[in-house]
Design a protein around this nucleic acid. Structure first.
Lengths: 158, 158
DNA sequence: ACATTTTAGTTGACCAATCCACCTTTTTGC
DNA sequence: GCAAAAAGGTGGATTGGTCAACTAAAATGT
């Protein structure tokens, strides 16, 4: 879904009123812009960026732990990590205490790319935050929590 | 080489606190659930549903008009419509006044599937709305507007 | 009137995301 | 102890979304 700026907001559809549709449209804009930004500044994908961000705050962890913390898809994560190891951004070694698990860490190259991308990503994040007021931002996060929970609950009782 | 140690903790931005990431995750949940719901209740895809919703309120229109109103991607739309015509949900005929344009309309079968799916989709929409308070919902939409605008503006000045 | 530019729609190629089946290792319940 | 279940991870298949190139028709400018 591409969702560029809409011509005339006045004749937009009820689709635009739907929470779900609005989330989709916003999402499309966010990832399009984010991907471009990351590719230009550091030559990495959004998924790779997310892995780097997670490792940055968590230190050496297993893929399963990343899944637990972020909710990212495990097979997608597996492929992403594989690619990043091949590109020399990460190292991966089998855990001694659990032969199933792999411990992932960032290389100097990974850190370098992370640091190249970070100012851009941070600037964007800040602009988004600034576009909202502080109280509005809090409401937004609280709304995200509630919506995610509502969906999870529907799934459970379905 | 632990990544974490190099960083100033005050500057770190865990994924979960990023607006962009939260939108992505919510989005993923929404479309996964929505797709499942549509497939089970009416055997249609999310994209097909969106086309039906748009036609339902607009009546007979051209694909280009749908793009204008919804911001959906035109190539994706083209393929979706093609499939829906093949499945007997839509009719498509060349406009007399403009030989490039196709007028799209819904068939009885299309309406039937739309009506099968609608109560489920409406129920979900309602549950999401109920999960938020009324004022919170308004804040949410207003926040979406601001965020979309902020991104559009960044694009323009880039 | 006619060359240029826009608009409508289609298609092919490509990458991202998801699903699911599978293998291996560890944990659990008896 | 050991069979069964659960957890970690991988890979194939499918779908969804994006981009760019292309054909054809219509609108535009001079």
């Amino acid at each position: 879904m591409t969702f560029k700026a809409l011509e005339d907001p006045a004749l937009t559809m009820p689709l635009n009123q739907m929470v779900t549709f609005r989330v989709s449209r916003l999402h499309a804009k966010i990832i399009t812009q984010g991907s471009k930004m990351l590719m230009e500044s550091a030559g990495i994908s959004l998924m790779q960026w997310r892995v780097l961000v997670t490792l940055e705050t968590s230190g050496r962890v297993t893929p399963a732990e990343i899944v637990r913390r972020t909710g990212l898809d495990k097979s997608q994560l597996s492929r992403t990590i594989k690619g990043m190891v091949a590109d020399g951004l990460l190292t991966s070694e089998t855990s001694e205490s659990d032969q199933r698990a792999h411990l992932i860490d960032v290389t100097a190259k990974g850190i370098d790319l992370f640091q190249k991308a970070r100012p851009h990503m941070r600037r964007r994040q800040q602009m988004l935050i600034d576009a909202l007021g502080d109280p509005e931002l809090e409401t937004l996060f609280s709304a995200f929590d509630k919506l995610e929970r509502a969906i999870d609950e529907m799934e459970e009782t379905a």
